[in-house]
């Protein structure tokens, strides 16, 4: 890496970010820290999600299924053999998995790699035929992974799920991983690979005619997203400590979709802004599902109302404000300096 102005500034802002994490960890309530942990994990997930949807333009609905894989793999690897033995009461776990035990970091990485492999296998049949069917295949995969985890009792403990997952995840784990994810993804975007992905998004036939192997480029985007979704799943599993086939529902995917649409499809800067807005906004919206008293009028809680609000929000943005907050624009130091000098970026 070169030591020029931009890289030094980037390094400084990462340092500033870790300073914020340190501050948040010491001065915020545990509730607020928890929401920040969610925010950081969601940022990692949505950055990957935006790489395939926004940058490469291939509409996909994979996150909840992929997060589930990462969560299960990591959970199985960090649970102790004793815990697993007492938990698997319907049928015992397959022996080689039951005795497998490792620390958090390798477990997270393996979770990411397994998810990436699944992504590769799933992407192959779909991208061979232009990727139109990616969304429905990944949607189907999310449903299928639920069916499978319900039935593979000797691996996943079926519908009982896994309990007592060690709580390694804290705000530092989340912060470090989100920095890694953002650096990797933004570097891919800012390279010949990113240009090829954007070319596919803008006009796939022309991209093919330019000699771009579109199948391969789509796979790189999809597999990268899958890896970070797997890691994110591992972090989440260790944060919520209980996972079962019904934990990672389509709502997770939907929330990420809202994030990348609000931020601007194709803009990682927009994704970062939107993640903070949506995760914290979603917390505030919990109010509408709880019973409340307004001026003496009792309104019972309406389950599902939050999701109705979200879906209307998504449709309205798509129709009236398709660009989102940032469009496809990206923050860069050059842009900032030019702004100061009053020049056109």
């Amino acid at each position: 890496m070169k030591l020029d102005r931009n890289n030094i500034l980037t390094a400084l802002s990462i340092a500033l970010f870790f300073l914020f994490v340190w501050w948040a960890n010491h001065h915020l309530t545990s509730y607020a820290v928890r929401i920040w942990e969610d925010t950081l994990i969601f940022l990692m997930l949505s950055a990957g999600y935006n790489l395939i949807n926004g940058v490469t333009g291939q509409f996909s609905l994979e996150p909840n299924g992929f997060v589930a894989i990462g969560a299960y793999v990591t959970a199985i690897l960090i649970l102790t053999p004793a815990q697993k033995e007492s938990m698997f009461i319907i049928e015992p776990m397959v022996p080689w998995l039951a005795n497998l035990h490792m620390s958090f970091l390798p477990a997270l990485i393996i979770g990411g790699i397994v998810t990436a492999i699944v992504g590769f296998l799933l992407g192959f049949p779909v991208f061979r035929v232009r990727g139109d069917y990616l969304a429905i295949v990944t949607l189907g995969f999310g449903l299928t992974i639920r069916v499978v985890s319900n039935n593979t009792i000797t691996i996943t403990n079926g519908s009982l799920g896994l309990k007592g997952i060690p709580t390694y995840t804290n705000i530092w784990w989340c912060a470090v991983w989100v920095v890694i994810a953002m650096i990797v993804i933004m570097r891919i975007v800012d390279s010949a690979f990113g240009r090829a992905m954007k070319a596919i998004r803008d006009d796939e036939d022309a991209a093919i005619a330019m000699g771009i192997n579109t199948l391969w480029m789509k796979q790189i985007a999809f597999v990268t997203a899958a890896f970070f979704e797997g890691v994110g799943g591992g972090l989440l599993a260790s944060l919520i400590t209980i996972i079962s086939p019904t934990v990672f529902t389509f709502f997770l995917t939907f929330e990420l979709l809202i994030i990348i649409v609000v931020g601007g499809l194709g803009s990682m800067t927009g994704t970062a802004i939107a993640t903070v807005l949506v995760v914290w906004g979603s917390e505030l919206l919990r109010v509408v599902e709880q019973p409340m008293n307004i001026f003496g009028l009792h309104i019972p809680g309406i389950p599902g109302m939050r999701m109705v609000v979200f879906s209307i929000l998504l449709i309205v943005i798509m129709i009236f404000a398709r660009e989102g907050i940032m469009g496809q624009k990206e923050f860069s130091w050059d842009w900032l300096f030019n702004k100061f000098k009053g020049k056109r970026a």
Binding site: F59, F254, L257, L265, S311, L314, I319
Partner: peptide, 15 residues
């Protein structure tokens, strides 16, 4: 773009 319509469709489904 095609992706806009697909995203809207999933929004309608969820709605």
């Amino acid at each position: 773009s095609r992706i806009s319509a697909l995203i809207t469709a999933i929004g309608v489904s969820f709605f």
